[in-house]
């Protein structure tokens, strides 16, 4: 995929000119003196290679791998907090010999939203704002790396990190369900839906967090912004849905749910992924409302990607 600019032997074999003279200029007076330095003759790796490296590097950085021991504490602790309840759920299922998991994979993700929010609030500014703070972005863009490739790498790494964060407990739940000898077909179906939910959740939340983190070089602001963006609308939606429920205006709760990323995911998993919603009264949005939920999610994902692209348009930053 990355073809080398010049095959290693082409120069020497072609003209017989000494190494160091640019090909095509011949041996005219305009030559650079060859003072004996070796040229780089290896493969030239382009933007795609940088993208992959940046993605892997960011993904590792989010979990503190390759960073100081202190940076590993928070992500690893949060990861443990995320997985432990899944193990407990499995243990309870096995001990009580229940016929089904007390909560499905997609419901589990929604239940653990506060933990995910903290993880993302710690991860996104670390992965994105610090490049702005330490002025490393111009260094990245001085390489053969396109703006869209940088954005894709950072966004992708964040989404992948979040997917790992949410999918591992889903795997634990699935493995536990199989060990408890629950119905195989049932559980595999739930697991697949759960993974779809994790992927959708990760891409949406990573996009919003990345867009916020890219707009401030200050880590503290980034953290605060991400947490506020996820929690304040969620509490607002919960409070308003509670009021609507008190007023017997159940139809409105679905539309109110559009106003926060958390309730957006809740509605989608209730409508399409076969989970129970946590909306008041356990109401599942009907198919029409569900389609609006999906559309809004897609719009938010695309919107945050374009916001990121626009943010990096100026090279100086």
């Amino acid at each position: 995929m990355n073809t080398p600019n010049t095959p290693p032997d082409a120069r020497a074999a072609g003209t017989g000119a000494p190494a160091g003279v640019a090909p095509g200029t011949g041996d005219s007076a305009a030559s650079i003196h060859d003072i004996g330095y070796r040229n780089y003759t290896g493969r030239r790796l382009g933007g795609g290679y940088i993208l992959r490296s940046l993605l892997v590097q960011t993904l590792r950085g989010v979990y503190g791998l390759g960073r100081s021991a202190k940076s590993k504490v928070l992500p690893m602790c949060l990861f443990a907090v995320m997985v432990l309840p899944a193990a407990i759920v499995v243990a309870v299922t096995v001990v009580t010999e229940a016929s089904d998991l007390p909560l499905s994979q997609s419901e589990y993700v929604l239940t653990m939203q506060p933990v995910i929010g903290i993880f993302l609030a710690a991860a996104a500014p670390q992965a994105i704002s610090l490049d702005l703070r330490h002025r490393t972005t111009p260094l990245y863009f001085s390489r053969p790396l396109e703006r869209s490739e940088y954005v894709t790498a950072k966004y992708g790494a964040l989404a992948a990190a979040l997917f790992v964060f949410t999918a591992v407990p889903a795997v634990v739940l699935y493995a536990g369900a199989l060990l408890a000898k629950l119905d195989f077909a049932d559980q595999t179906g739930n697991f697949a839906l759960g993974l779809v939910m994790c992927a959708l959740f990760s891409v949406l939340h990573a996009g919003i967090a990345a867009a916020i983190a890219a707009h401030t070089p200050r880590r503290g602001f980034g953290v605060a912004g991400v947490i506020v963006a996820f929690t304040v609308p969620y509490f607002l939606v919960s409070a308003l849905q509670g009021i609507a429920w008190d007023q017997d205006a159940l139809g409105v709760t679905g539309w109110i749910g559009l106003a926060s990323p958390g309730s957006l995911m809740d509605g989608i998993q209730a409508t399409f992924l076969g989970g129970g919603s946590t909306f008041p009264g356990g109401r599942t949005p009907p198919l029409g409302e569900g389609a609006v939920y999906l559309l809004l999610t897609a719009a938010l994902i695309a919107g945050s990607y374009f916001l990121l692209l626009r943010r990096y348009r100026k090279a100086g930053l």
């Binding site: 304040v232 509490f235 607002l236 409070a239 308003l240 509670g242 009021i243 008190d246």
Partner: peptide
């Protein structure tokens, strides 16, 4: 909320607690 629901003590307490004091 006032425009859609009207004046209601329970709703007021609910909103001011849930969004106001708690968030």
């Amino acid at each position: 909320v006032r425009a859609t629901v009207g004046a209601d003590d329970a709703v007021t307490a609910n909103l001011l607690t849930g969004f106001g004091v708690a968030t």
